[in-house]
């Protein structure tokens, strides 16, 4: 029997539990020649803001031990051009579109939600966790009250599925709870961890934006722990993100309590990662004789309780 790996998050149907993480897969259409996009469960777009953003000065990426720092700084074409130029082209591939939104003020998120409610967009992912913004971004997601108020505003204006993407903050539990209380349908975690790399020859920071967000295998253990903890206290589903490169990485997240996963840095290396990881999950399920992926969600915790 074919293992059952599809799922439904507050009305959003996903044919498999592996999504490309925002910012690491463009608007999807950059990859249409190379990746059979219709086999993906959805596209999550690059973070979008109300107005176009230039982003940070280069260099914007540097490799560190087991990880990658980036300081793209939310460069994007703005919501208007996205709707006009990109959205129709993504829609041609017949997969759900999840738009990742960011902003410097809570009002900006609200306006974006209002605009996107009228478009053919299945879900929003509210990014209150970007470490590369002066204002907004992670500053919102580190404070339960502000995080809650952003989600509340988005919830009021957007009628379909809303994910809240929260940062790896010390107080991640109250932040996640606040998002749930204000109506988020799922929590995506984690975004990158604010970090630094120095060039000892020039004696300066390597990245143009000075600080960057750490992603990749280096953050996986941190992310796993957070997924475990947050899924313990929430009623809504958790989507695990952080250093997933293989099917087995994804299984670890699912066993820790995630119902689905997102793949970021691995996409930079291999744009086919999501599909390969989905295959990896299926092989694992076949090997373990598991019929439905829901049987695996949080299974590692059973002995704990």
């Amino acid at each position: 029997m074919k293992p059952k790996i599809d799922l439904n998050i507050a009305g959003l149907y996903l044919k498999n539990p592996v999504l490309p993480a925002s910012g690491t897969f463009g608007y999807g259409i950059e990859y249409e020649e190379m990746v059979p996009l219709d086999q993906l469960s959805a596209i999550i777009t690059k973070g979008l803001t109300l107005k176009p953003r230039e982003g940070n000065s280069p260099p914007r990426i540097v490799e560190t031990a087991c990880g990658v720092l980036n300081s793209v700084g939310l460069e994007n074409i703005g919501i208007e051009r996205f709707i006009k130029e990109k959205l129709p082209r993504i829609r041609e591939h017949n997969i759900p579109v999840i738009v990742n939104i960011g902003g410097e003020t809570a009002i900006e998120y609200e306006e974006l939600a209002g605009i996107l409610d009228k478009e053919e967009v299945e879900a929003l992912e509210v990014n209150i966790s970007c470490p590369n913004l002066q204002k907004g971004g992670a500053a919102f997601g580190n404070d339960p009250e502000i995080a809650g108020s952003v989600i509340e505003r988005v919830r009021k204006r957007f009628s379909r599925t809303v994910f809240a993407k929260i940062p790896p903050a010390d107080n991640i539990n109250p932040v996640a709870l606040a998002c749930q209380n204000e109506g988020a349908d799922a929590i995506s975690l984690i975004n990158t961890i604010r970090s630094l790399a120095i060039d000892i020859e020039t004696q300066k920071p390597i990245l143009g934006g000075i600080f960057g967000g750490l992603s990749g295998p280096a953050i996986k253990p941190v992310a796993l722990r957070m997924v475990w903890e947050v899924s313990n206290i929430l009623d809504i589903p958790v989507i695990g993100i952080g250093g997933i490169f293989t099917g087995s990485d994804a299984i670890e997240f699912i066993l820790s309590g995630a119902v689905a996963v997102q793949v970021g840095t691995a996409n930079l290396v291999d744009p086919l990662s999501c599909l390969k990881i989905t295959e990896g999950i299926k092989e694992y399920m076949a090997r373990k004789g598991i019929q439905n992926i829901t049987q695996l969600v949080g299974k590692a915790k059973l002995s704990e309780k």
């Binding site: 910012g23 690491t24 897969f25 463009g26 950059e30 990859y31 190379m34 690059k46 982003g55 000065s57 280069p58 260099p59 914007r60 990426i61 540097v62 990658v68 980036n70 793209v72 460069e75 996409n267 930079l268 744009p271």
Partner: peptide
């Protein structure tokens, strides 16, 4: 410095 090399990550500005 590049990430994806495919136009998807905006790292190579």
């Amino acid at each position: 410095r590049m990430g994806c090399g495919m136009g998807g990550c905006l790292c190579c500005a």
